[in-house]
């Protein structure tokens, strides 16, 4: 705690300054005088794009101590010019939502509740099931003997908010695996 000098008392400041009624600068606390927006005190800011609709508004993401502390519009964007709709404006809450899950959850067959499972084990389990489902649903040929070379045991849905790079790997992997039942929101 800094030494508080007699001269700092608001009353004294009132008398000494032109703000004799104490309605302006004379009553400002130190905190008020040192006020700075967290956009200026952030460790870094990166440019991103809103994840909601397809207008693709530019966003500025401010990070402090490894956490996202503010997301607002990017004035540099020629499309959005710094503006955001309520959903885009709520992006920080999307990232930091109280209901956001950060741990993997697993539901066993017939179970009534979730249980925790470590991520590595889960991915292994999924890989095993992927291979088994692929085999079980495999079709070499159709009823006329024409080649199909595919599996109908696996399906996928989603992708409208995924990156192009992600969709590319998904399509690549699933197609190589012979899984054709891949869909996303474009058709819904």
């Amino acid at each position: 705690m800094a030494r508080f000098s007699f001269l700092e008392w608001p009353v004294i400041r009132q008398l000494r300054s032109s703000d004799s009624l104490g309605r302006g600068e004379a009553v400002t606390s130190q905190r008020t005088r040192e006020i700075a927006p967290r956009t200026a005190t952030a460790d870094r800011v990166v440019q991103s794009v809103c994840p909601y609709c397809a207008v693709g508004c530019g966003q500025r993401v401010f990070v402090k101590d490894g956490k996202v502390v503010q997301i607002e519009g990017d004035p540099d964007s020629p499309i959005s010019r710094g503006r955001l709709c309520p959903k885009g404006a709520a992006s920080e809450q999307l990232v930091n939502a109280p209901g956001r899950q950060t741990r993997l959850l697993y539901r066993a067959p017939r179970a009534t509740e979730w249980q925790h499972l470590d991520l590595d084990t889960a991915i292994d389990m999924i890989a095993d099931r992927f291979i088994a489902a692929r085999r079980r649903g495999w079709q070499d040929t159709d009823e006329h003997g024409r080649r199909l070379r595919r599996t109908m045991g696996i399906a996928a849905l989603g992708g409208a908010t995924l990156d192009n790079e992600e969709n590319y790997l998904i399509k690549k992997l699933f197609t190589a695996a012979g899984a054709v039942q891949i869909e996303n929101q474009a058709r819904i």
Binding site: A36, P37, G73, L84
Partner: peptide, 19 residues
């Protein structure tokens, strides 16, 4: 009126967002 933004020459949050 977003005083903390104003001291840094920024636009208030609502005005910046308004589409």
């Amino acid at each position: 009126l977003c005083y903390d933004r104003m001291v840094d020459d920024q636009t208030p949050a609502c005005a910046q967002a308004c589409p």
